[in-house]
Amino acid sequence: MTTPRPSLTERRKAATLNEIALAAARLFAEHGAEGAEGTPDAAGAEGITAEEIARASGVSLRTFYRYFRTKEDAVAPLLANGVRHWLDELADGPRELPVPQALERSARIALTAAPGRPAVALDLVRGILRTARHDPDLLAVWHRVHHDSELELARVLADLAGTDADPLELRLVAAAANTGMRVAMESWAASEAPPGEAAGLAARCISELTAGLRLWTD
């Protein structure tokens, strides 16, 4: 079945969410730019306001609060978009690949810059994660996005595995792969490695965390 095209209202909402998320990410990332050995300006990050994010994204404060409960929530769409690309690549990838290789392949593609998906997005994620080390509310958003992605990953894996798959095994694989992606991004963000190295690190972490699990090879 062909997926219905989003309505004009839905597309406008998505564009607004994206603009707000990018503005919020840039502001938070500015306070995580000191480097792996530096200490981000936690006080400055706390000083970022919803008003500032709204102004930077060209929307009213009322519009901001229509979509987001807190200023930290505003970065969630940007983080979720990266996860969504990983899951889409996994779902649409070659069905003949064993699940471990499919997970690694999709992670590499999702974290590799391409037309329409510049590496600057990874730099924003790096800044957010560096700031989040000193901002519990921002860190909570990061963990919430990954919790949601783990549940969605289990659903994608269930489709790949077929009806005979053990539901517990699906959750274990999803948890291991999702944790691998999260740890890879956090480790990469804390380093000075260029964006191009994030993909290889993610594939390595996913491979090592799923190696001890019984995976499908059909």
Rank of each mutant, 00 (worst) to 15 (best):
K71Q: 13
A76L: 14
V120T: 15
A132H: 05
E152G: 00
F68T: 00
L61W: 10
H31Y: 14
L172W: 06
A203N: 08
R11L: 11
P40E: 05
A107W: 03
R62I: 09
L122I: 12
A113C: 03
E30A: 15
L153I: 13
P4N: 03
E72Q: 12
T163F: 08
P167Q: 00
A161Y: 08
S191I: 10
G116K: 01
A184Q: 02
T179Y: 04
C205L: 08
L8E: 12
A24I: 04
S207G: 09
P100I: 00
T3A: 14
R117M: 08
R84F: 09
A175E: 04
T217E: 12
D41A: 06
A56C: 08
L97D: 09
A174H: 04
S7Q: 02
T210G: 05
R182M: 14
L172Y: 06
L151E: 13
D41K: 10
A76V: 09
D41H: 12
R5H: 12
L8Y: 10
T112R: 07
C205N: 13
D164Y: 02
R126L: 07
P6R: 04
P40I: 13
S60E: 06
G47K: 07
P100Q: 00
N18I: 02
R155S: 10
D92W: 03
W86L: 13
A15F: 10
